[in-house]
Design a binder for these strands. Structure first.
Length: 212
DNA sequence: GCGTAGATCGTCT
DNA sequence: GACGATCTACGCT
């Protein structure tokens, strides 16, 4: 018999107790870089068997759509996989890479403008700094797979983005995106954002520009 | 701490 | 048929 998938109990949260609330659609329709910055410090929440799990996002990357060679939607590429990126801001786009990892993205802008923010790392409420450190691990820890791609994060589904009522003060780091060397000039664009004080942000973050 | 190799398969050419 | 918005293990320093 196959064991039932289980999420790590250290990720259990009570969104109300944490003072978390969902942003409106307009939050996600803003310019992608702004959304990417503001998602650092936001929470991703996941409902699993009726219980809420979640983590504080500490690393993101912006993908700017048709003009961004690093984006799956570059040059207007539109396939079944990428289709969710063409949806309205506030949808989830999940893809599968390297034969074993999933990556979660939050779609930005409006319907027809395929931009998104990749969630690269998060910090759980109960320690375990490496549990969600990296896009693949983040998805694994929260049970996010391509089955959830296209989900509307604002329509009461099992995955939501929540903002803290009081934003924690953190140093925001900025750098080029990871793993997009093939993207020509776009590879150097400073579209990666991270909480420079987070233990969940990988070592390669060191030595890059930090915005006060 | 750093560099490299191997895993493994959906997606697109 | 090639390769990827990654991760881990392992060897070396």
């Amino acid at each position: 018999m196959i064991a039932k998938a289980r999420l790590d109990p250290r990720l259990r949260i009570d969104p109300k107790r944490l003072g978390l609330r969902p942003p409106g659609r307009s939050f996600f329709r803003r310019p992608t870089e702004a959304v990417a910055r503001d998602l650092v410090g936001a929470w991703i929440a996941r409902r699993h068997h009726g219980r809420w799990y979640g983590a504080r996002i500490v690393e993101t990357e912006a993908y700017l759509g048709v003009g961004d060679r690093a984006a799956h939607s570059w040059n207007g590429r539109r396939t079944r996989r990428v289709e969710p990126m063409y949806g309205d801001g506030g949808h989830l786009y999940v893809f599968f890479v390297y034969g074993m990892h999933h990556c979660a993205n939050v779609v930005t802008r409006r319907k027809g403008d395929p931009q998104a923010v990749l969630l690269r790392a998060a910090e759980g409420p109960g320690g375990a700094p490496r549990l969600l450190s990296g896009p693949g691990r983040l998805c694994k820890a929260l049970g996010i797979t391509t089955k959830l791609s296209g989900l509307d994060l604002l329509r009461g589904g099992d995955v939501r983005i929540l903002l803290p009522r009081r934003r924690r003060r953190t140093r925001l780091g900025v750098s080029a995106r990871i793993g997009v060397a093939y993207a020509g000039e776009a590879a150097a664009w400073p579209l990666r954002f991270f909480d420079a004080e987070s233990v969940a942000v990988p070592a390669r973050a060191r030595g890059v520009q930090v915005v006060p």
